[in-house]
Design a protein around this nucleic acid. Sequence first.
DNA 1: GCGCTTTAATACGCCTGCGAAATAATCGGC
DNA 2: GCCGATTATTTCGCAGGCGTATTAAAGCGC
Lengths: 120, 120
Amino acid sequence: MSIVLSPQQALRLLSDVALDVVRDKGPQNHPDFTFRQLSILMTIYLEKPPHTVRGIAGRLGVTKPVVTRALDSLGALELVTRRRDEADRRNVIVQRTVKGALFVEQLGDLVADKAKGLAP
Amino acid sequence: MSIVLSPQQALRLLSDVALDVVRDKGPQNHPDFTFRQLSILMTIYLEKPPHTVRGIAGRLGVTKPVVTRALDSLGALELVTRRRDEADRRNVIVQRTVKGALFVEQLGDLVADKAKGLAP
DNA sequence: GCGCTTTAATACGCCTGCGAAATAATCGGC
DNA sequence: GCCGATTATTTCGCAGGCGTATTAAAGCGC
């Protein structure tokens, strides 16, 4: 309950962040990241592992093919990796990467920085 | 300089917002909004009118066809409308709609609400 | 061991957005 | 008035994501 942010400030924040991302001043050049992809990435980096396709799909309320495809594209960008769960080989464990961690960190810094510059 | 938000809180905020949007608890059902589309919408609703295709494209650093197509899709959702500038009929003036205003307002409320619930 | 379930990935047809180039309409200087 | 410049849109081929249905692999209960 510690952060006080008016709706107006919230919009300005969102707008500033989106603008930087689109202008390619954001972490990297991914101007057409969707909320879906972002949410999957955030889940992997913010929630406690291990992460399975099923778990992510359930959390987001989307189908498993959606998650599989998102992991394909995030994997191509080297933001996540996959490996089989040896305990139950039906499962796939999604893991973080150095590049992904950097990306997420920079994204957090961007948002925090934009918040700092908001008008009262 | 009035808002203090740590990078960690910023990420949590972003994640929470994205999750709600994806789960369709957000303003409306647009889970695959991209940063590009969002940024265009925000420009129209937060920046001072009038808004032309050229102006928006310049602000975002994208080409004009990108803006035209985004306006097509945003228009189909009734979040914006277009009309010719009578003073200079080459220009198109992008205008807000009731539905779009409501959408943006709800988005601001969502972000503000999520911020309120952040851990210190 | 053999169904039955569960997990993830793949196949299919569709739709949307992209960049680059071409087009249509309008303006403005001369 | 005409011609080059400007504005927005359209066209083209292409790449990627979607949902649904299907497949492949692995586990579980009896």
